[in-house]
């Protein structure tokens, strides 16, 4: 069954992204929210961890932190809260890596 993984912490503060990526399976999506969005910045140390995964980033959290979409690694999808809701319904369950 497919899963939506939520990571809400900076990869430089917590290990939640590290652990999460070990659990992502084919068909899953990883959504970065709150301070989790920093992981998707191109040229960052954390970005490499996302390669090969289906990654989405919450747009309002990006904007709040002054990160333009042009600063993101290729292939990530930017969603709004409605898109967040869609992801939660499209996948069979949600795992928050708190």
């Amino acid at each position: 069954m497919s899963m939506l993984h939520l990571v809400n912490k900076s990869p430089y503060e917590r290990n939640s992204l590290d652990t999460c990526v070990g659990y992502v399976k084919a068909g899953d999506t990883l959504l970065l929210i709150e301070d989790g969005v920093y992981a998707a910045m191109s040229g960052s140390k954390a970005a490499a961890k996302l390669s090969g995964l289906d990654v989405a980033v919450l747009g309002p959290d990006l904007a709040a932190r002054g990160i333009g979409e042009d600063r993101l690694i290729d292939g990530v999808t930017v969603v709004d809260y409605a898109g967040f809701v869609d992801l939660a319904t499209d996948k069979d369950k949600v795992q928050s890596w708190l």
Partner: peptide
């Protein structure tokens, strides 16, 4: 919702998610 208001964003995120879900008819 596991965190209180203001200290963490969790309650804000939960509110925005809940509001969006309701507006989409869920």
């Amino acid at each position: 919702v596991n965190e209180g208001p203001y200290q963490h964003q969790a309650s804000d995120s939960a509110y925005q998610f809940t509001k969006s879900a309701l507006e989409k008819g869920h």
